[in-house]
Amino acid sequence: MAYIEIKDATKWYPHKSGKLRDIFRKDKSFVKAVDGVNLSMDRGEILGVIGESGCGKSTLGRMLTRLEDPTKGDVLVDGVSTAELIKKDPLKFRRTVQIVFQNPFDTFTPRDTIQKILLRPLKHHKIGSSKEERLEIIKKALEAGGLVPAEDIMQRYPHELSGGQLQRISIIRAMFLNPSFIIADEPVSMLDVSVRADIINMLIDLARNHDASVVFISHDIALTRYISDHVAVMYLGKVVEYGTADEVINNPKHPYTKALISNCASIDPFEELATIAIEGEPPTPINPGPGCYFAPRCSMACEECLKKYPERYEVSPGHYACCDRIES
């Protein structure tokens, strides 16, 4: 059985028009941020989640860490529901599941030094028995993460450090708790290209050497391909294609994935790419459907597509796509 199982995870936000009739209306409308996502992961696996902004990637990430409760569905870690885990022992759940946020400049309280910030989770989770021991742990971890001189960094305030340093500290802090499931919510999108590699390598090291499952949320397709074992493509709250990274990138089946990948810049400037243009904005996630959510913008859409949401097909072993019009 898979280590992490995401079962029909759904997050609907009630949509308010701000008018008085909201109160009396029975058929409430919802923003379907995440709409029935099914995924599974093994230990030590990196799952890349890609999609354009607003497709529910970050909401999915927050749901996995239980920063938000799902409207429907559940996430199982090692066969146990996270809802139960967090009720039974919230601290243990937090030690199991950790998140690295997108904005490193805002991940730490601006009023405390790095030392204070890093001491807090150690104390809270009773790691190390004395302050001296905890300081020693922090120092070692910072040095291992390439943040030298550690003593100097520990005395600094977050705004005195660079984004790359802060993001490394953020990962180090998550690693203190020795988590087995890590969500990285666009961890490098706010960093310079030059420091991205460090962060990526830290995450890969986490998965490979600490046997942790990593969800890597990103909109950078090339990067996702490099880091992940499997890739899930999201569109408007649903996973439209899932498979191994190479398979999905090299042999995309869903028209949305095809369009995404065809628009991805190649390193070879002379390579001819037939880009597939998608017209229009993504439709609003307020009560979308019926029919395929992508149909209004899809180049291959036909009448059938507008009637019911397509089923999930296994294109090749382990490679799934949600489209009725896949040419085999």
């Binding site: 920063l67 937090r94 950790q98 946020f101 309280t109 809270h124 708790l177």
Partner: peptide, 26 residues
Amino acid sequence: ERTFVRSAVALGETKTQILFKYILPN
């Protein structure tokens, strides 16, 4: 709504701790 409050939640700090250590001081 700031990230450091969310990350404090993710690190398992309780509501009281967050109120007194993050919300009030900031």
